[in-house]
């Protein structure tokens, strides 16, 4: 056995993408704000004939052709999405829409929302279960990233600065390819309530919180919680984060999937949650482009 004192030096983290939380970390500027709430709406398309390479929550998990789950998920690009966007517009809060490339043909009816400069667009990959893994070759992944950035931006006539992979999946090359493609920020990380800097392939990225484990997909779909329990826990989380706002406010990411949160029996409770969050002292809603821009300015 080798005594610890004689062991070779150990790296603090076992990668070079970012540092443990120390000086130099990007932060949302404080101003008059104690908490930033970031509403993230994920627009997923589940092809009827596609299976993910590993299990993910919400995928079509019955044998082909899974008409039931397919159409229930498709409500998230139709009625459930319309309901949800109606509530978001009624509250007047900004949102970040993560758009998968294959979801684009379904979004005609909400194009006014998606063009609204109050909101921003984030590239969400090819489709819900086109997961990025080490088996995806580099050229294929590069093309998927480029196609999604180009087509989502072109469809709504707006630039796309951010990326969020389907189910947070990444290959060993994903971050480097995103940075190479000019992406400014990525929402795949669940390790902080504040933005932080990443270096991938020698280029900078910002990790903007879009935490899957704070999402309806996690709490309601995977954990089977009632929407009232989800709303109560989210409100308590906001109060806790607002109370610990020093030295800078945190970001509470509110990640929702319309096929879950836009369901008839949930959407009103979610709208009430948005209003409760708006009423908290010192809370400011920001979209992810704004958070990224503020973080870079303050880093």
């Amino acid at each position: 056995m080798t005594p610890a004192a004689e062991s070779p030096p150990v790296r603090r983290l076992d990668h070079d993408w970012f540092a443990f939380r120390t000086a130099g970390q990007a932060r949302v500027p404080a101003a008059d704000c104690r908490l930033v709430v970031s509403l993230v709406v994920v627009l997923q398309h589940f092809p009827l004939d596609a299976k993910p390479p590993f299990a993910v929550p919400g995928a079509l998990d019955r044998p082909y052709p899974d008409f039931g789950n397919y159409t229930q998920r498709e409500s998230g690009l139709g009625h459930a999405l319309w309901r949800l966007t109606d509530e978001i517009e009624a509250c007047g809060v900004p949102a970040s829409f993560v758009v998968e490339r294959q979801a684009l043909p379904w979004l005609e009816d909400v194009q006014a929302v998606l063009r609204d400069p109050r909101h921003c667009l984030v590239a969400g990959g090819e489709h819900a279960v086109r997961l990025h893994t080490k088996e995806m070759d580099r050229d294929t992944e590069r093309r998927i990233i480029a196609d999604c950035l180009r087509d989502v931006g072109a469809r709504f006539g707006r630039p796309v600065a951010g990326w969020r992979s389907p189910y947070g999946s990444q290959s060993p090359a994903t971050l480097e390819l995103l940075a190479e493609a000019g992406v400014r920020y990525v929402g795949d990380f669940a390790n902080d309530d504040r933005p932080f800097g990443i270096v991938a392939g020698g280029r900078p990225l910002v990790a903007v919180p879009m935490n899957h484990f704070y999402s309806d997909l996690h709490f309601i779909h995977a954990c089977r919680q009632h929407v009232d329990d989800y709303a109560q826990a989210t409100l308590r989380a906001a109060e806790w984060l607002a109370a610990e706002a020093q030295p800078a406010p945190s970001v509470l990411s509110l990640v929702v999937h319309p096929w879950i949160m836009g369901a008839t029996h949930r959407v009103s409770a979610f709208a009430s949650l948005l209003r409760s969050l708006q009423a908290l002292p010192g809370v400011r809603f920001m979209n992810s482009d704004q958070i990224c821009a503020a973080s870079v300015a303050d880093a």
Binding site: F20, P53, K134, Y167, G168, S169, T174, A190, N191, D193
Partner: peptide, 17 residues
Amino acid sequence: PAPDILNYSWRDYGNRV
């Protein structure tokens, strides 16, 4: 499959925050 960024970063949350 590795790199399981989602779950890795979730565990990292414990030490970082």
